[in-house]
Amino acid sequence: MRATGGRARLRRVALIGIDGSGKTTQAYRLAAALTSAGRPATYHRNAGGRRWLGRVANRLGVPDAQRLVGRNGVLAVESVLRWLAIAAALLSCLVTGRTAVMDRYSACQYASIRAHGGQRWERLARVGYRVFPPPQVTFLLTVDPAEAYRRIERRGTDHETMDWLRAADSAYRTLPEYPTFVLVDAGGPPEEVTRRIQAHLAQWLPAAVEPPAVPLAVQARP
C-alpha cells in the first residue's frame, strides 16, 4: 500500500455476514463517512442474484430457486454473478481512485457454498476468485440467527429459513479466513455498530463522523 500524507492508502474494505446482519446499512454509512472525512469512497453491492433467482422461481410457480435450477444451478449462477459484480467494483475503483466499500466479498460466496453443502463448488470458486486482492479490512457482522430472522421478517422483502441462517452463520465461522476477520457485534442498534466499525478505522477516520440517514430503499436490503 502506498502512503498518503503519512497514512497507508485505504483501497478496499469489505462487510460480510449472514442475511439480516446489517451489511448494506453499514457499508452505505461507511462509504459516506469516508467520503466526508476526505477519503472518497464508493459503495458496491456485490450480490449473487439469489434473491432475484428466487423471484423468478416464484413467478414460474416454483417455491424457490433451488427447486427451479437445482443446488448446483443456484451455486453456479450465484458464483458467476458475484464474481462479475466484484470485478466491476474493483475496476471502477481502480479507474477512479476511490476506496471500494464492499457489501459482500468472496468470503460470502465461500460461506454460501458451505451452507449449501457444496464443498466441490467451493474449491472451484476459490480458483476463480483468487484473482481478487483481499480487502485491507474485512468486517464480519455477527448477529444471532434468531435476531437476523426477525429483522428479515420485519422488512418483508424476502424470506430466509432459520435452518439456512444457522448454516450460513456456521459456514462463516469455519472459513479458513475467519481469523483475519474483524468481528463486530451487530446485534445492537445500527448507530452503535457504526461507531464500532469507525473506531476500528480510526487511522482513516480520525474523528467520529455522524452516520448519515440511510434511505429506506437501502435499509430494506439484506
Results as ranks from 00 to 15, higher is better:
residue 33 A to H: 03
residue 34 L to A: 01
residue 35 T to W: 04
residue 37 A to H: 11
residue 37 A to V: 01
residue 38 G to W: 08
residue 46 N to Y: 02
residue 46 N to F: 02
residue 47 A to Y: 05
residue 48 G to R: 08
residue 50 R to P: 04
residue 51 R to Q: 13
residue 51 R to C: 07
residue 51 R to W: 15
residue 51 R to H: 15
residue 52 W to L: 00
residue 52 W to D: 06
residue 53 L to D: 12
residue 54 G to H: 11
residue 56 V to D: 01
residue 56 V to I: 13
residue 56 V to Q: 12
residue 56 V to L: 14
residue 59 R to T: 11
residue 59 R to Q: 15
residue 59 R to H: 13
residue 61 G to Y: 07
residue 62 V to M: 03
residue 62 V to D: 05
residue 66 Q to P: 03
residue 66 Q to V: 10
residue 67 R to K: 15
residue 67 R to T: 11
residue 69 V to Y: 00
residue 70 G to D: 04
residue 70 G to T: 04
residue 72 N to K: 01
residue 72 N to S: 01
residue 73 G to L: 03
residue 76 A to Y: 06
residue 76 A to P: 08
residue 77 V to T: 14
residue 77 V to N: 09
residue 78 E to N: 15
residue 81 L to I: 06
residue 82 R to Y: 12
residue 82 R to K: 15
residue 83 W to M: 00
residue 83 W to D: 03
residue 84 L to M: 13
residue 85 A to R: 06
residue 86 I to R: 06
residue 87 A to M: 09
residue 90 L to T: 08
residue 92 S to Y: 04
residue 93 C to G: 02
residue 95 V to W: 13
residue 97 G to C: 08
residue 101 V to D: 09
residue 102 M to E: 14
residue 102 M to Q: 15
residue 103 D to W: 14
residue 103 D to S: 06
residue 104 R to S: 09
residue 105 Y to H: 09
residue 105 Y to N: 01
residue 106 S to K: 11
residue 106 S to C: 09
residue 106 S to D: 09
residue 106 S to R: 13
residue 106 S to G: 11
residue 108 C to F: 07
residue 111 A to F: 06
residue 111 A to G: 02
residue 112 S to F: 15
residue 114 R to C: 07
residue 115 A to M: 00
residue 115 A to N: 04
residue 116 H to G: 11
residue 117 G to S: 08
residue 118 G to Y: 05
residue 119 Q to R: 08
residue 119 Q to I: 02
residue 120 R to A: 09
residue 121 W to L: 02
residue 121 W to Q: 00
